[in-house]
Design a protein around this nucleic acid. Structure first.
Lengths: 249, 249
DNA sequence: AAGCCCCTTTGATCCATGTCAACGTGCGCG
DNA sequence: CGCGCACGTTGACATGGATCAAAGGGGCTT
């Protein structure tokens, strides 16, 4: 959590996010909306907020009143147990939404932290509900986004409940690869924004186990890793890894 | 999956569920709605469907067009991997909703199976969306329900990612106890509707491990178990179990 | 440019839970 | 009413990943 002295003193900037001008809307909430509808949405997406690496977008327990769309950067969400144990519940990149968990109790139920300097669009939730009572497409798309989050979580449960360490890491890398691809980046080469410990927490493994699995993949020629830089050399090989043995030790 | 010969040949019964007369609405979708609003909802909740034990409400891959509210009985949802591995993603009881995962792709992404003879209300999803564009309370409540599902899944991820076997089982029993309590049943005594294997799948454990944990809890005087009959003798003791050590082996 | 600290890697050992096996038990069906 | 079978329990052993430990590397700070 480096607290570097920086030129920009304010993180809350009152500038229209302008969904209509945003090249992300194919990935984000406006997906499928007409131009006129997107302009209505512009009125709801109140402002942008910049975060430095390590900064919290929100913390568990804080009152909820908006969801956020990642405009640039990279986040993690996590849940802390009283005894200090941490579970990373997800990593969010460009175009993905943050804060959906807060709707339930009107308080955030997890922490959201920027893993690199990032920018989000703030979407006041009551406004979004209002607009989605008017625009059926928006309503339906929002429901799909929430549902997708549920499906995603089931995938993670599957991973945590039935897969062994190397399968989990393979699944994780393939998932990242696919999401980078969808954003126009290379499917085969990327920088991890999170530490081995955060990967481990997400995958239910210790950081040493994650590190060893990386090394093993490298030995087997499946990937090339150096620190946070990953190149996938053999995608089918990684996929094959995932459909094998039973059990967890 | 006993295929008993039964008197009732039809499972799809065209009878109004009548939310307005249903004593469950404090637990279910109509929560917080006015009487007039509940009557509108009655028009949407198309019909009831009865399922025998072992019967599927829906299967992964089937087209999605409705969500379901459990009116009576008990369900599990699960996801299957190609290689046969199963992950139980949840157990649903009276008043809880099934099928939210299907909204995302318009196809169900998991299987829903009745663990005892059960009855559900069918809620055609497009109708629900239509009505929730009219009734803000309903819209907001529905969003809360979806969000609650996300929060619940994060809890399971925490459990699978950071807890050891006995902690997981303690968390599971306390959760069941709390949900039975909310439904007016005894918090301390209930019948499990699922097998040790299903519990194990949900908790990311093998059935033998679940069985041993039950036996251990019994030795320690925390519970009394006999087969599917469970009595909780020491709730604080179970809670204490959950806030201890690190690590998974 | 140097130094520090965090992250990562790797090795050695341990332990929780998986695996395999055998036996017990109660429900449902014939 | 009793038999069979799925479910549950318990024991012995195997092992994957955790734990403990130590050393190397890279980037940010000074």
């Amino acid at each position: 959590m480096p607290n570097r002295k920086i030129a920009t003193p304010i993180t809350l900037i009152d500038v229209k996010s302008a969904c209509s001008n945003c090249n992300l809307h194919e990935l984000c909430l406006p997906l499928g909306l007409s131009h006129a509808e997107i302009e209505k949405l512009d009125e709801v997406v109140a402002n942008r907020r910049r975060l430095k690496r390590g900064e919290h977008l929100y913390r568990a327990g804080q009152p909820f009143d908006a969801i956020y769309a990642v405009r640039s950067g990279f986040f993690k969400t996590d849940v802390l147990l009283e005894d200090g144990r941490e579970q990373v519940t997800g990593f969010q990149m460009t175009g993905e939404l943050l804060g959906l968990d807060g709707i339930s109790t009107e308080h955030h139920s997890c922490n959201a932290v920027a893993l690199e300097d990032s920018e989000v669009c703030t979407i006041p939730f009551l406004h979004l509900e209002g607009l989605s009572r008017e625009i059926q497409t928006l309503q339906h798309h929002f429901h799909k986004v929430m549902s997708r989050e549920i499906v995603r979580d089931h995938g993670v449960m599957m991973l945590l409940g039935t897969m062994r360490a190397e399968e989990r890491l393979a699944a994780f890398l393939l998932n990242l690869s696919q999401r980078f691809t969808a954003r126009g980046y290379s499917p085969a080469e990327f920088y991890l924004r999170m530490t081995r410990e955060e990967i481990g927490s997400y995958l239910g493994l210790k950081l040493e186990t994650v590190s060893r699995a990386f090394s093993r993949f490298q030995e087997e020629g499946l990937i090339a890793v150096q620190q946070k830089h990953v190149r996938i050399l053999n995608t089918p090989g990684l996929k094959r890894l995932m459909s094998h043995q039973q059990g967890r030790g």
